[in-house]
Design a protein around this nucleic acid. Sequence first.
DNA 1: ACAAAAGTGTTCTAACTACACCCATGA
DNA 2: TCATGGGTGTAGTTAGAACACTTTTGT
Lengths: 226, 226
Amino acid sequence: MHAFNKYPNPSVAIDLVVFGYREGKLNLLLLNRKEAPFQHSWTLPGAFLQMEELFQDTCHRILRTKLGLERFYLEQLYSFDALDRDPRGRALSVSYYALINPASYTTTAGAMANDVQWFPTEDLPPLGFDHASIVSVALKRLRAKILYHPVGFELLEEAFTLPELHQLYEAVLGVSIDRRNFRRKILESGYIIATGQKRTGAKNRHPDIYQFNKAITPHQFHLNIS
Amino acid sequence: MHAFNKYPNPSVAIDLVVFGYREGKLNLLLLNRKEAPFQHSWTLPGAFLQMEELFQDTCHRILRTKLGLERFYLEQLYSFDALDRDPRGRALSVSYYALINPASYTTTAGAMANDVQWFPTEDLPPLGFDHASIVSVALKRLRAKILYHPVGFELLEEAFTLPELHQLYEAVLGVSIDRRNFRRKILESGYIIATGQKRTGAKNRHPDIYQFNKAITPHQFHLNIS
DNA sequence: ACAAAAGTGTTCTAACTACACCCATGA
DNA sequence: TCATGGGTGTAGTTAGAACACTTTTGT
């Protein structure tokens, strides 16, 4: 038995589709590349997998460097293998997607580097590499996932109102959802609990504030969209 | 811009979870290793990704070599990255799962090599590497997938009866499903069409023979299991 | 005629859909 | 008091769950 790493192997990039919810829209975090290839183009933040690094370690390294972010929802998306996806040579991409709340870090230390920027998903610039297709897979996955698993909360602050969650779902799915049916469905799932407080400040009725119910045993719920 | 493949990179294995339906049970194709590591242990069939090879090419290479199989349903499963998953050194695994009909090839040329064997999924031997966890992910994926997409047909012959399909679903999902509701649901989906012929030979009523409806536009159907 | 498995229909129940009014707040 | 958006309930419809008898075939 001998080590086999002397044989040439493809490089392995980890690329991150970072979703954030801002101003009522689903946004994507993009990086403006300083070096070739695709210099001055927008791309997904990414890095090469180091020899003794786990995928998730690389993800954390990327987001810590670019955003000072330590905690976020992270899930493996897909692995891409086109031969020409990187002009420098054969490079696979193991892509992940992350859900973060932009508001929770912009004020903290290690804030966003000036080469990264949020873009609404419906108005993205041309992307370098094969990143447009990675984004396309990620959007499809997120839209499928949010119907069955409580991931929407990851995009909001810890305390949120039902109208906020409702608007988030409409923005992510790109459809309108009946307020009353949405409310009933979400509340019946047990995934959120009322805090008894209300969000004040608006000049109209103050909505109730809810929190994600961390104590709940994971289960699927069905949010059927007609 | 320069090639970066001079830096050391992890090896990339492609591992295949090959499902086949035999004797009323969901089976898995396993390979008995001739060399270390895990000599004489059962493992998933796999190979190292070559420098200019697509994932799917590697999958086809593996199944052509081991089974003489050319056509099969194939879908990427997940990528595994544990540092110690291969004792020879850092090796990622990009795993795929395949659905095949065992009956369609055993009689053909290039038949099954003598180091591969079918095992019922509920009675698997200990597996080398981290392959037990790959299998676990694959089973979960198949069970989720079969409820919404017409992949069950990939495991059967081109012509099949509804009782056969019914039994397949019960075997894959490990639950019993009401015959009448199952039949109605499948027929309403439009995914199968009656050929007008009947499967003869049994000493009881001869069931109708159906085929997968290739002309149908892809859509999801819901097979709800209580 | 009998045993064995295939084919078929209906009732009950639960879930989803559609929809309109009242309430709280700040200006 | 008015404008704005938040909170609530119900009737109608659809889909799923549960369930039993008749039909075909070979022996």
